[in-house]
Design a protein around this nucleic acid. Structure first.
Length: 133
DNA sequence: GTTGAGCGTT
């Protein structure tokens, strides 16, 4: 068994466990406090997005992806809430709603949170080869 | 001065 496979499998298990540990509050979707927000206007920054989502709960983190070259917004970002019900209500309220002229597309974010660095170790005689992705 | 579905950095 490879290490990367174990990590992937553990992440899958965590999603299933978080879903099955709350049988009653299961709203037919992998609930999370992280929201994926797309359909943003090009001129939307993090502060305006946070101001828009702060009315639904306590926003802990807001990140908008900007282009490395031009520095302009790529039109999507992420909003972190302190509670899952806040994120759920915010998604339910803001999804499909217009924001600065464009219809917003809000959904739960995927757990692309930790990307393991590409550690290519040339040990002696190929002792340890750690390839990720 | 542009574009328009999507799942991101340490």
């Amino acid at each position: 068994m490879r290490k990367a496979s174990l990590i992937h499998f553990a992440r899958q298990l965590q999603v299933i466990k978080s879903s099955s540990s709350h049988p009653r509050s299961f709203s037919s979707s992998p609930s999370s406090n992280k929201l994926f927000v797309a359909g943003l206007s090009w001129s939307v920054d993090e502060k305006s997005l946070k101001e828009a989502f702060s009315s639904f709960g306590e926003v802990s983190e807001v990140r908008i992806m900007y282009d490395k070259d031009s520095g302009r917004s790529r039109g999507f970002g992420f909003v972190n809430f302190s509670r899952e019900d806040e994120a759920t209500s915010a998604k339910d309220a803001m999804d499909g709603k217009a924001f600065l002229g464009r219809p917003l597309k809000v959904s739960f974010a995927l757990d692309k949170v930790y990307r393991e660095p590409v550690t290519t170790r040339h040990s002696n005689m190929g002792t340890t080869f750690t390839r990720s992705r």
